[in-house]
Amino acid sequence: MTNQDTKTPNNIQRPDRRTATQIRPLSCKQGFLTQVDGSAQFAASNRSTVICGIYGPTEVKPQDEILDKAFIDVKYRPDVGIPGTKDTLSKVVLRDTFKHIIMRSLHPRTMIQLNFQVTQSDGSIEALAINAGVMALIDAGVPLKYTIAAVSCCIDVDGNALLDPTQDEMNDAVSIHTFAFSNIESDNNTPIYSNSTGKFSLEEYKMCFELCKVGANKILAFMKTCIETKISQLNQS
């Protein structure tokens, strides 16, 4: 668990009293929306929250119909203001990520729509959106190749890597990296998703990679616990 790299000492105190390699306390609830076919809310310490609602597999517009697989449609809305260019980018990125996870060939000539709504933003929204999307797809029963979990990491001005940064930490960061890993063990070194912005060295990238891998595995374990609790509650009846 502890990173051997000297640049990520565990004794760094962050404003919210976390260590550099600690993720914020997570919370997740599924199936709380009534009109969608599946829904999930994924939150980090109740300050960063994303909701995702799934429709599908459902009827597809004729112009979007694909004969041998499902069409993936993503809608993304920020918590403040109307969707802009930045949000369109998030939308495209999310669509391309989920395209590879959903087993689209099992539902040809249909549409699977993911509706993202950021409800509170305090950093790492990109990663939380991926996590919310996965949990919502699982709730909707859409067939998936694997479960993935995403986490962000940023390098601050002193060269320290901070896992799951808050908005303030992201604003002051030199570079921000987001990775998503699947729950398939053999794929442990092949991220499903990687997005880096800012100026960084290869070493820094590798450091973030390792850090995020550990973080993502923690989130995957959290997701598993969430689903186990939900199912065992249902089975009690």
Binding site: L33, Q35, I51, Y55, Q113, Q117
Partner: peptide, 14 residues
């Protein structure tokens, strides 16, 4: 800003 997103119900299309 009171735009209704598709999330609320499929009848609402952006």
């Amino acid at each position: 800003n009171t735009e209704i997103a598709t999330l609320a119900s499929p009848v609402f299309d952006a």
